[in-house]
């Protein structure tokens, strides 16, 4: 009887220990890769998953490799890996919306629009996500926009308000005219900068140009030629600088408008994770 128990124990225990010992077995490689993936060490996780794939063919692993590449912003490899997931896989739909995200991040516009329209027309479970990503990208890249109501349809009510504002900003960006700024400053020094909302610089330019002009005038009037010319040079410098500065100020203002618009939309997209679904790989 005891011999039997002993034999049974050895038979049960040996494989358990044996399994733990082989840290390079496919199962353990996968376990370790999962750990690295959830630890956000994506590059190492990808290497381990690739080792696992040499032995076991698994679409989830392929998907995680692609996702890893996407998360480290290696969109070229991400696209390659996502594209390797065939349409019989359970993760096919997810991989298509992830491809759309990668195309958007790699600025492959023509391929992006083609796939986005494909996804929208295919009535897949992520059609609406594709429509949302497409519409947000249109705001970022295109000059011609669809009708506002039609544009906002795919979004949730909270996002509608925000994107409605961005839509209006895209239609009527609050730019300042460089020509108007230059002309205003040529007529009244500093007024161009006040027009571009650079109030401090505008007032300073007005005061300094006025001051040096006055000093140049009174010095010439009193026959102090040297000082007259010095103040003239200073006044002329400030005057020319004020006109040039106003044009530059308008350019800077417009660049800031563009930057705030693009940055705001990009942050919105990142916050929404490009309308890709959330995965529970690390639960």
């Amino acid at each position: 009887m005891s011999n039997k128990i002993f034999f049974l124990l050895v038979v049960i225990l040996f494989p358990i220990y044996g399994q733990q010992i082989d840290i390079h077995s496919p199962k353990n490689i996968k376990k370790f890769a999962d750990f690295l993936f959830c630890d956000k060490d994506y590059l190492r996780a990808i290497d381990e998953y690739k080792k696992y794939l040499e032995v076991v063919n698994n679409d989830t692993i392929r998907f995680k490799i692609a996702l890893g590449y996407s998360l480290i912003n290696d969109q070229s490899n991400a696209l390659q890996e996502f594209s390797s997931i065939n349409n019989s896989s359970a993760l096919y739909e997810q991989s298509r919306i992830e491809v759309l995200k990668s195309l958007s991040l790699s600025k492959s516009d023509s391929a992006f629009y083609l796939l986005a329209n494909n996804l929208i027309n295919s009535k897949s479970q992520f059609s609406n996500n594709a429509q949302r990503l497409l519409n947000t990208s249109i705001l970022l890249n295109e000059n011609e926009l669809p009708d506002k109501n039609k544009f906002l349809i795919p979004f949730e009510s909270d996002d509608k308000l925000l994107l409605g504002n961005y839509y209006d900003l895209k239609i009527n960006p609050p730019y300042k005219s460089e020509t108007v700024a230059g002309i205003l400053s040529a007529i009244i020094p500093g007024s161009g900068k006040i027009y571009t909302e650079d109030y401090g610089d505008g007032i300073t330019a007005f005061l300094l140009t006025g001051l040096f002009t006055y000093l140049a005038y009174t010095n010439f009037e009193n026959d102090h030629q040297t000082r007259g010319w010095i103040f003239t040079a200073l006044g002329a410098g400030f005057y020319a600088g004020n006109v040039y500065g106003s044009v530059a100020s308008a350019q800077i203002f417009n660049a800031k408008v563009n930057f705030d618009f693009e940055n705001g939309l990009k942050l919105f997209l990142e916050d929404k994770n490009f309308f890709t679904p959330a995965y529970d790989f690390c639960k």
């Binding site: 005891s2 002993f6 124990l9 050895v10 225990l13 040996f14 220990y17 733990q20 010992i21 840290i23």
Partner: peptide, 24 residues
């Protein structure tokens, strides 16, 4: 006989544990 078997079992278990440690 039972005593001998117990000893062998302990030895085997230690050996397996050592094997794990050796792997590490």
């Amino acid at each position: 006989m039972i005593f001998v078997n117990k000893k062998i079992l302990v030895i085997i278990l230690i050996a397996i544990a050592n094997l794990h440690s050796q792997t590490l």
